[in-house]
Nucleic acid binder design. Sequence first.
DNA 1: TGTTAAATAATAATAAATATCATTTAGTAA
DNA 2: TTACTAAATGATATTTATTATTATTTAACA
Lengths: 149, 149
Amino acid sequence: MKPTDKAGMKYTNQRVEILAFLREHDGHPTVDEVYDGVRQKLTRISKATVYKNLKFLTEKGLLEEVNVKGVSRFEANFIPHHHLICRECGSMEDFNSEQLLDYSMKIAEEIEGFTIVSTSTNFYGICKKCKESKKSEEPKKSGESEDEI
Amino acid sequence: MKPTDKAGMKYTNQRVEILAFLREHDGHPTVDEVYDGVRQKLTRISKATVYKNLKFLTEKGLLEEVNVKGVSRFEANFIPHHHLICRECGSMEDFNSEQLLDYSMKIAEEIEGFTIVSTSTNFYGICKKCKESKKSEEPKKSGESEDEI
DNA sequence: TGTTAAATAATAATAAATATCATTTAGTAA
DNA sequence: TTACTAAATGATATTTATTATTATTTAACA
């Protein structure tokens, strides 16, 4: 964080705890999860404070906001990485591939007009947990054909 | 769309127009933009209908919901592609790279547990428009150093 | 063309996020 | 240290976004 940005910015317990919580929990917590987590330490924290700080810290570039299936999630991991996103349950986990980052940035260099500073690839599919719980469900009938509107 | 899914599904004007609007507008419209757009043709359509159909069509797999800077946007483009996302204004445009898709899917094959069906890379940066409007603002002071919390 | 389940419009109800404001606090400088 | 001040907090009100309800309409199909 640059000193100029720091001017007029206070490091309150609330702010520090929220940031610490995010740095200790890389499971992309939602607002409520951050609220519940931080409340363990700061029992009297207001949810409005959590909202305001998540927004503030995101604007300051200390957090990243991601959204899966309509819910906002936050992360403090700024080491460029990718995401494995389950289409079924909406869970999301980090995935690293230096190769893919390099490859993407190489492609980014050729894009005109838009100045790219970072990239992230989302891998969509079905996670282990959902795959296993699907096995126990009724198997689909065969003989279905594709048919667009 | 599979015939089995089609059972008990009606092709109302509202639904058809919403889908048509999304297919004609690849700028990732928000709920309100879809509402305003469709209202040109169906002046009496209710916003609740727009909400319900966007949700319904997304669940049926005919639309994709994406979220930038906290706002939901929808697209009907199912040809795998990537996105250029402006950190400044939150705008988002499509970007195609067959190479990158191939490369990503090759990497996906090596991921254990998670079964990947598609990938999409987000390129974050600053768009042409924002870059130009920044020029007119005061330039930053020099001599800044990095300094973490 | 009659029947019926599904969808709609209008609106009420909920939930999510932001704004307000009196009070407290971190940062700074005397 | 102490005093000052802008920034942040907590509590709550307000706004905005989304979903639920329900009487009515409509698409699908026998």
